[in-house]
Computed example of a mutant assay.
Amino acid sequence: MLLRDDPARAFMPYPAVEVPGAASGPLAGLTFAAKDLFDVAGYPTGGGSPAVLARSGIKTQTAPAVQRLLDAGARFVGKTHTDEFAFSMNGKNAHFGTPVNGGAPDRIPGGSSSGSASAVSNGLCDTALGTDTGGSVRAPASHCGLFGLRPSHGRISLEGCLDLAPSFDTCGFFARSGDVFERVAAVMLGEDSAPLPEQPRLVLAADAFAMLDTEVRAVLAPLVQGIEAQLGAAQMVDAAGPSGFEPLYWAFRYLQGREAWLADGDVISTHRMPLGPGVAERFAFSRTVSDAQVESADGCRADFRERFRTIVPEGTVMVLPTVPDVAPLLTDDESTLESYRNRSLNLLSLSGLSGAPQVSMPVAGRLGAPFGLSLIGPVGSDLGLVRLAARLAANL
């Protein structure tokens, strides 16, 4: 890393190598980091795994997503920790440790973009790239008190980035302030194919809010009212549909599991490497996913995607909780963490299965910890969604 000190344990301790960028541009004066899934010339790419790191070698090319920030004048300061193979949402890596949550140091930072969220929330850089497959930007954004974007699937290039589940993988980013969030979004996203109007129609995912504990709903209720005061009354909808969240949860799990095993199963089997808690169980599950389960899950995703377009058509945004609650404590056991992850996936799967963009806004808190509220927009509305989120957050 290129920083003098890393008190948050957010960065991989790679030898410092300067990465040249533009001397001026729209992001001049900002610093950034990149999750250790992205290739950066002069650095290895470890993917949160000692075996992947050992096989990496020093990269000679920089991933286009990283290069875009460099070309806009931002200064690269290092590569950040990720959960092992990016297959977790806790931020606790059995091999490399746990970065510090800058919004609640006694709680997990969330993952798998744990180091990126930690670096930004602790003020070590202005913005950071992460990836989001099943919530790996949105969950840590909520946990650490940050803005975080999961873009429309395929909106930002993932060339030069390690895969987890390609039909869900996206490149997102974090920021502490709405201003920086908007500046980075303008560079990374370009113009929208489905622009949002100044006053989009608002829908509220009633079934998502119904999943929350009473105390959590009470925290978010005045914020939803504040959004309605700015955009107009929200129409209540059931985002998951008549069958509820369970079919969507399993469709996501089966598809992610099959793709994760295709991406990483060979290196895991070949080297018989020890995997950390939670990650080992998820890969064991992934290995058993059947063709029939994948076929059924594909059908479920296609049906949901079509239905979601009718709920969130062009000119519409949906408001929903990012995750079910504030981040679990660092002292919570693995069963508690896994239970929280599974509850979170019900909410987080909506954006993943639909391919639509989602922004988590740092507008709430509970038990002395940050808590995010989210907006989902139509596919192709990403930049407008970021700008809307920054505006709403500033006025809440």
Rank of each mutant, 00 (worst) to 15 (best):
L2G: 03
L2K: 08
R4P: 09
R4K: 15
A8L: 09
R9L: 10
Y14C: 09
P15S: 11
V17N: 11
G21L: 06
G25E: 13
G25K: 14
A34W: 01
L37R: 11
A41Y: 10
G42I: 11
A51M: 15
V52N: 03
L53W: 09
G57F: 08
K59I: 08
A74F: 13
R75Q: 12
V77G: 07
G78C: 08
F87W: 13
N90P: 00
A104F: 05
G111W: 04
S112F: 09
S112M: 06
S114R: 11
S121E: 11
L129R: 07
G130V: 14
T131Y: 07
T133W: 08
T133M: 13
G135N: 14
R138Y: 07
A139S: 12
A141P: 14
S142T: 02
G148T: 09
L149S: 11
R150W: 12
R155C: 01
I156K: 05
S157W: 04
L164Q: 07
A165C: 08
F168N: 08
F168S: 12
C171L: 14
F173P: 00
R176H: 06
D179K: 15
V180C: 14
V180S: 10
A185W: 03
M188N: 03
L204P: 00
A206D: 12
D213C: 04
D213F: 01
R217E: 06
L220M: 14
A221H: 13
P222T: 04
Q225V: 00
I227C: 07
Q235K: 14
Q235L: 11
G241W: 12
G244T: 02
F245K: 09
R253V: 06
R253P: 00
Y254V: 04
R258G: 04
V267S: 07
S269Q: 13
R272F: 04
L275V: 01
G276M: 02
A280D: 13
R282S: 07
F285K: 02
T288R: 13
T288N: 05
Q293R: 08
A302S: 13
R307G: 01
P321V: 12
D325E: 12
V326L: 01
L330E: 03
L330K: 08
T331R: 15
D332P: 02
D332S: 13
T336H: 05
S339P: 00
L348P: 05
G352D: 11
L353A: 01
A356V: 03
V359C: 07
V359S: 07
A364K: 11
G365Q: 15
L367Q: 15
G372T: 01
G372Q: 05
S374D: 08
G377V: 06
L388Q: 03
A394D: 14
A394F: 04
L396S: 03
